[in-house]
Design a protein around this nucleic acid. Sequence first.
DNA 1: ATATTCGATTGACAGATGTCGGTTCAATCG
DNA 2: CGATTGAACCGACATCTGTCAATCGAATAT
Lengths: 117, 117
Amino acid sequence: MAVDLELAPKSKRPAGEPCCEPVAYPDIGRAQAERLAEVAKALGDPVRMQLVDVLRRHAGKVCVCELVPLFELSQPTVSHHLRKLRDAGIVGSERRGLWAYYYVEPDALKELSAWLS
Amino acid sequence: MAVDLELAPKSKRPAGEPCCEPVAYPDIGRAQAERLAEVAKALGDPVRMQLVDVLRRHAGKVCVCELVPLFELSQPTVSHHLRKLRDAGIVGSERRGLWAYYYVEPDALKELSAWLS
DNA sequence: ATATTCGATTGACAGATGTCGGTTCAATCG
DNA sequence: CGATTGAACCGACATCTGTCAATCGAATAT
């Protein structure tokens, strides 16, 4: 696991040229790196990437019965991917009667987006 | 695996109320989803997230001997993470004598960043 | 009440992932 | 030359991940 960064003293150099200029400290700490990585990891699957894309593109909320036919996957597998996205805080769900509707949490991708740009 | 999206006809509804409004087609296709997911997956680890952050923050190039002490990880493990990042096209490397220098590929994160915002 | 439907959960499985110790290889130093 | 050093590679290991078939629970329809 990573530790919260501390620039250790270099080991001795064999040649006159130094290995490199002193490295810049990471701007993000361990905690933020883990939050960002959690979101990125949830997006790190083509199916989930497309799921989020559909949900984001849809103004309102989309029910699972609409999502499953978009993929050549079983319903439990799609449900599993939706759970991953929900665990990462990227999407939310709401049950209305027999159906479940999913939607993208508005601010879920903001931090990652900000870090990337 | 995902298929290249096609809105299948709905199954019959139990009640009068429809399940939901017709879903928006995903804007991204399978190929783009896989590219985006590949980058996101590579970023989906706290260590790699911090690695990229250090490299991005550093104007020039950083050598591995600087990166290893930042983590409580063995050198082979850091090397492994750097390889993942390189395989995803996020970073590049250059050997100069005994040392290896890593840097962030300028346009590597552009597509993901654009999709996120 | 019984059957049906939607969606989540469980159990199982192959495959990938993170980590390490040990090794290897190229380049440098003495 | 031989010894040392930085970094990548290999083999092993436990864990996690993606997928499915089967099942379950709740809500609805007949």
